[in-house]
Design a protein around this nucleic acid. Structure first.
Lengths: 345, 345
DNA sequence: CGGGAAAAACAAAGCGCTTTGGAAACTGTG
DNA sequence: CACAGTTTCCAAAGCGCTTTGTTTTTCCCG
């Protein structure tokens, strides 16, 4: 059923039916209700392509998911972020367009998205430092919002981020307060902006307390369980092992915990861990009693997705607005994985 | 730049340019090259909405991601499946349309997808038994492919699945061969078809060896790390604990491992685990030496995504074809998590 | 009851593409 | 050189919607 057929059924013109459905004031309330009822009955929804062609709006947001060519891996937080964003899109009548591309094709992918008029805007994930996507999108004039920040950017842009520096500073300070001095950092890849900020926070907290950072205790890699395990294993087996870990992800933290337990050490009692918790659905950081397994800097990536969607849509609706940004603080939640440094530890 | 402008630049009609770009034989090779070069230079790509309107094809595939209202959780294998499917879509000139909906809105979501002509087909994830989506889609005439199967379906349909019954039968038999008799099953939610099949395989293997299944050793829940831990903890603390576990996911298996280690037991030596491994990017089941951490029934969900996309596209291109299906076998890979039953275990 | 303003409905153009049916420009041949 | 047969290109219609500009209908009041 299309608009023409529906209007014939109703004995009205296409114009009137269209206006009725789109809530224009020029049509009598009684007519509108008649039209809406008929649309309901016949299961009519306007053809997206036709509507988009007529309005010039795609009513669709693009997410370009790069595949790390190195490990062919999808960033696990995408799923939750996208779930959050998707919720808001549906509520607002937008759709979600996904492109999965190898990082080599990323630029081309964005250009096509714009040229084909597939989307009204895009969300940029995991920005790097001096991320070329920002200038590219500015050049092609596609509205965008960055999830994260780009410390190297020269022009203003809209973003949404968690205060990574503060979070990791607090986590490190907390461990220092517990008496730890050998504190390791298991970080994400440090060409990512968030990873640099986290390291900054970590380093600042150490130096503020006159603890000299040790490169041997700093690791930067993809945040997988095996990588976390591997790094922790190496550090724990070294002559002067860490007594605490600050870890950029719950997933790597599970690897760290494994390394700890393999060595007969007890997490919390012998070795402490603070992890960053994105509140991924399948890794709820809580035991049966509801107590966090890991002491964590917590910030829901799902919630970030929702807010990012909301911000991007308002940017699209009012392009004249100045770039907007939102920074939220991560919560430091006490769990079972931290404790005072043991004598001799 | 649109078609009209491009054709004016070239001094050709829109018809000719369109045909040239779409590879029709009616246009001279020399002209085609000229047109293609110009398109390249001006960065021309046809407007998707206009093209879709004219052809009646959306060139887009829908994935409806249901959010479990119970736990607000996104199935973690989606990300990898979608990555695989997305790869194939881009290669074939298709796009990917994602809808995130609470399971209550699922039916409406599919109807809208069809009515708005947003997509040419959809992939159904995680089918249940007597899944209402199959008949719904048949009713509205939207081509679809099921990732998994629906044992309760009455009419034929196209699907792609891993041989869950066989995989879990083999895993269980393998443990029996190692001398285990108390074998637990940590399964996914058993209204999902795959979970039922896995239980079937498990039960069949037990009864074939005259081992009586024990309901206390069978758990069915969402496959999260805490759930795996919780179930394993309860079972291990029971008077007659299991000496081995068959687990439906690497993620829950990590919880099982945690419970084992907490009790001072050694995985492999004291308690065995076989897990199903979807080969998720961030949980590569391998240690530094490349040896699997968990003995596993392995089947790449990413690869499944690729193949599912391929199958669905061919169904769309030739709707007259009979329903097609593909069943692959999971590989049983030996890792460090299994060993013979210990005396007294 | 007539006239003008407000309300309600409409016809048609246009969004950017594909595609049908046809015209023009080349071929080669008798 | 004329003619049929190819090649090569084109004008225009149509996809299903929105929206502009207009017409028709209704309403109110002097």
């Amino acid at each position: 059923m299309n608009l023409k057929q529906l209007s014939e059924t109703l004995g009205l013109s296409q114009t009137t039916v269209s206006r009725a459905l789109n809530g224009y004031p020029e049509v009598a309330e009684i007519t509108r209700q008649r039209v809406e009822a008929a649309a309901q009955v016949h299961g009519y929804s306007p053809n997206t392509r036709a509507k988009g062609l007529a309005t010039g709006r795609a009513m669709s947001i693009g997410h370009v998911i790069p595949i790390s060519t190195k490990h062919e891996m999808v960033n696990p937080v995408f799923a939750d972020f996208i779930a959050g964003a998707g919720e808001h899109y549906s509520r607002s009548g937008y759709e979600m367009h996904l492109s999965v591309v190898s990082d080599a094709d990323e630029a081309r992918s964005y250009r096509q998205l714009a040229a084909k008029r597939n989307v009204d805007g895009v969300i940029i994930h995991s920005p790097r430092i001096h991320d070329p996507r920002l200038s590219l999108l500015r050049e092609i004039g596609l509205p965008f919002l960055v999830h994260g920040r780009d410390s190297g950017a020269t022009a203003p842009y809209s973003w949404l981020d968690v205060n990574n520096r503060r979070a990791f500073g607090r986590a490190t300070a907390f461990l220092l307060d517990l008496g730890h001095r050998r504190i390791a950092l298991i970080n994400g890849l440090e060409y990512m902006d968030f990873a640099v900020r986290r390291r900054d926070g970590y380093l600042r907290a150490l130096t503020e307390r006159n603890v000299r950072p040790d490169p041997a205790l700093m690791q930067s890699d993809e945040m997988t369980e095996p990588n976390g395990h591997d790094a922790a294993r190496r550090m724990l087996d070294s002559p002067d092992p860490p007594t605490a870990f600050v870890v950029s992800s719950i997933i790597s933290a599970m690897g760290v915990r494994r390394a700890i337990q393999e060595r007969g050490l007890r997490m919390g009692a012998d070795v402490s861990i603070i992890a960053h918790d994105d509140e991924l659905g399948y890794f709820r950081n809580a035991d049966e009693a509801g107590i966090p397994i890991f002491t964590a800097t917590r910030s829901s990536v799902r919630q970030a997705g929702r807010q990012a969607a909301e911000m991007l849509l308002s940017i699209i609706e009012r392009p004249d607005l100045a770039p907007m940004s939102r920074l939220f603080e991560a919560e430091l939640t006490l769990g079972r994985s931290t404790g005072p440094r043991r004598e001799g530890g």
